[in-house]
Design a protein around this nucleic acid. Structure first.
Lengths: 241, 241
DNA sequence: CCCGGAGCAATGGTATACCAAAAGTATCCC
DNA sequence: GGGATACTTTTGGTATACCATTGCTCCGGG
């Protein structure tokens, strides 16, 4: 039993096995195959992926460096993104992405903006949009803006922080993710006007809403109904400026 | 010739060799032993450190994951921090650290603040402060504030971004780094007042000055006198909000 | 029935052997 | 003499063997 990678991965591929392993493991983490807190054992994983420990360990080391895995003593666990983590991440994103939106104003071409608008409006039927689809469009919008900011560090940060947001259980929740649509369009509109301040406002507002959405969502989820007093503390993190 | 780690490192140490290697290599990078752009070869490095390739490769993979090294095809090079990078990093730090300062207001105890003040004022004689000393105090101040913000993500980011700032050649430049002293004290003062907005202002002002300091410094440095028009572009990155 | 230790399986860490690709280097043909 | 070709070396990637620690199981004595 050492056939696994060719199931959906690249058949021959010229990437190193370590890179492939890394991508595969990262995918597993995002897909929830390896939920937060899971202990990861290089031997098991290596066998599962059909390769030796070396490239797997290399991949694990790298993922640990990137913060997706955590080393406690000798055991490696999938870094779980807690509710508090998400709140902190969103507070950070609020800052960074607000700024990227501001910077992006006047730096994005109208055709490019039209593209984004089309992609956003392509999500016509709320019932049609799968989660993957939603995330794809969401990524496209936020990432395009971040990259248009001209600040590569911020763009990288946005990508990273968004990935972490995504690692929060939050997945497979049949949620009305459409409200984001109007907010996305508002951001695009501001960018089309070249109004950086308005774009920043629209972006921070969008992220504030996303946070509120999570808050509401969790309020209605039994297991999350009352995650201690942490909520009260974190509620203010984003609304200070 | 396989004695190197015991020269200044921990004699026996219970950390894994990989961790020790990572710390050592990171130190080499910060210390300028491995300047930006240097190609890193695991065999050479392993021999130099007196251990086998495995832990070294593990360390390198991890450092690459953290962004200190860069993989181009098959060769690993030390990530060089360009002038543009520093400007971008500072623009980002301006945002994040401004916010951490705001959040830290009212969250730091007066004794703690007094401690910081003492450390800052300990740098009495400008000629006395070595670069290490300067960085130590600087780290202490910024990191303490970041951690006091209560937002671990931001604190982590501050640490990371500051490390990267440090990777910029900027080292061994016999510069008057004292002006930072007054600015640091201004931040502390605002925090003692519990005035978040003032603290944020003081912090962003401090970082703006640091940026200007680099700009001035490089203007007087032949090899950096005119790093293309990039300067004009980046000059505005931080002063938008 | 419980406790403790002896043995054993599992697991992470490390070293090393091997391979293939790439980069030099020497050589040979024109 | 110049350029192409073959050989040698270097180097990163991978597999695997080995070791030490950890934790578990199972057995025996109390």
């Amino acid at each position: 039993m050492e056939m696994q990678l060719q199931s959906s991965g690249p058949p021959p591929s010229d990437e190193s096995l370590a890179v492939r392993a890394m991508n595969e493991i990262r995918r597993m983490i995002f897909a929830g195959v390896l939920p937060g807190g899971t202990v990861v054992q290089d031997r098991k994983l290596a066998e599962q992926l059909g390769l030796s420990r070396t490239p797997v360990r290399e991949a694990l080391g790298r993922l640990a460096g990137e913060g997706y895995l955590r080393r406690d003593k000798r055991i490696l666990t999938v870094q779980s993104v807690s509710f508090e983590d998400v709140m902190e991440i969103l507070a950070t994103r609020r800052l960074i992405e607000g700024e990227t939106a501001r910077l992006a104003a006047g730096r994005m071409t109208l055709p490019r903006l039209a593209e984004l608008r089309a992609a956003i409006e392509g999500m016509i039927d709320p019932r049609e949009v799968s989660h993957d689809r939603h995330w794809t469009v969401d990524d496209l919008v936020h990432q395009s803006i971040a990259e248009a900011s001209g600040n590569r560090m911020m763009a990288r940060l946005v990508k990273d922080l968004r990935e972490r947001t995504r690692m929060f259980g939050l997945s497979r929740i049949p949620r009305r993710f459409d409200p984001g649509k109007a907010e996305h369009l508002a951001i695009i509109a501001a960018l089309e006007q070249g109004d950086g301040d308005a774009a920043a406002r629209a972006m921070t507002h969008h992220i504030d809403n996303a946070r509120q959405g999570i808050l509401d969502l969790l309020a209605g989820t039994p297991s999350y109904a009352a995650p201690a007093g942490a909520r009260e503390d974190l509620k203010n993190q984003g609304s200070t400026s």
